[in-house]
């Protein structure tokens, strides 16, 4: 019977499993690179929300005087959270679809045959989405400030909005990654794009629910995106209040937990697949 030392000499030690943190960083860098290198996928996500905001702010500028409209400086200020969240949601769908592309072109299988820690595949993607979320949030807040729509809550509110943007980027990224992992089809992920658009439209994003009527108002008031929108809007249009911060971050966290769990479930399912 040979001692453990002898074994170590004769058989080479198996390669170590890649640790979670460096693997996640590596995967995150890859996700970010793939975003940066395809401007066609994220530039529209910056430009279109701004264009919609510009047209709506000009068209609807007089509606802020209608009875029941929240107390805002301008319609543009009212639109800040909608534009920010819209940009993050669209950007996240595009980034999330990449994981399906990985599955389609076989990169996912290559990862599976490597000792990379499994959660890193998902966390890396979400990390990339988080960085994009920070950039988008600062960009939109900057542009709006330039055109005179201030964040009344001050720098703290801006910081909270950035955190919310990051959490929402994770939420939509998790949702898209989950669908991508489940279906393995980039197209399937992109087919959810119109759904996000519909959810956004039937919410308080572009107009206050108080001024809506009928079934549309009923749905909009119960749309979780409206809750998110209203909480973020309070940070923009009123002075900083602790409740508003907790509400905004709490709702965004809720979204993130639900969709990331969904994505993790789908990842586990796919990893187990023969």
């Amino acid at each position: 019977m040979s001692g453990p030392g002898a074994v170590a000499v004769t058989t080479p030690a198996p390669g170590r499993a890649t640790a979670l943190v460096p693997a996640t960083v590596a995967m995150g860098r890859r996700a970010l690179l793939s975003i940066v290198r395809q401007p066609a996928t994220w530039v529209p996500g910056l430009v279109f929300p701004l264009l919609i905001a510009a047209v709506n702010a000009a068209s609807l500028s007089r509606t802020v005087d209608l009875p029941g409209f929240p107390p805002v400086d301008s319609f543009l200020q009212f639109l800040l959270p909608a534009t920010l969240i819209q940009g993050v949601l669209f950007g996240g769908i595009v980034g999330g679809a990449d994981i399906a592309l990985d599955i389609q072109d076989g990169f996912f299988d290559r990862l599976m045959s490597s000792p990379v820690a499994r959660p890193a595949i998902l966390l890396g993607r979400l990390g990339g989405a988080m960085v994009l979320g920070v950039v988008q949030a600062l960009f939109f807040i900057g542009v709006f400030t330039l055109f005179g729509a201030r964040v009344e809550g001050g720098p703290v509110a801006v910081a909270v909005l950035v955190v919310v943007a990051v959490l929402l980027a994770v939420s939509i990224g998790g949702f898209a990654a989950g669908i991508g992992l489940r279906t393995g089809s980039q197209e399937a992920v992109q087919n959810f794009f119109p759904l996000v658009f519909v959810l956004l439209f039937i919410s308080s994003a572009f107009f206050p629910t108080a001024l809506m009527t009928g079934w549309f108002q009923w749905v909009a008031e119960r749309n979780p995106l409206s809750w998110m929108m209203n909480a973020a809007r309070d940070l923009v249009i009123s002075d900083l209040a602790f409740d508003d911060v907790v509400r905004a971050v709490g709702i965004a966290c809720g979204f993130a937990v639900v969709t990331v769990s969904f994505a993790a479930m789908q990842l586990r399912r796919r990893v187990r697949m023969p």
């Binding site: 609807l60 209608l66 439209f201 039937i202 107009f207 001024l211 549309f216």
Partner: peptide, 10 residues
């Protein structure tokens, strides 16, 4: 639906 619903009060 979207324009009619969201902006009905214009």
């Amino acid at each position: 639906i979207a324009f009619g619903g969201a902006f009905s009060s214009v």
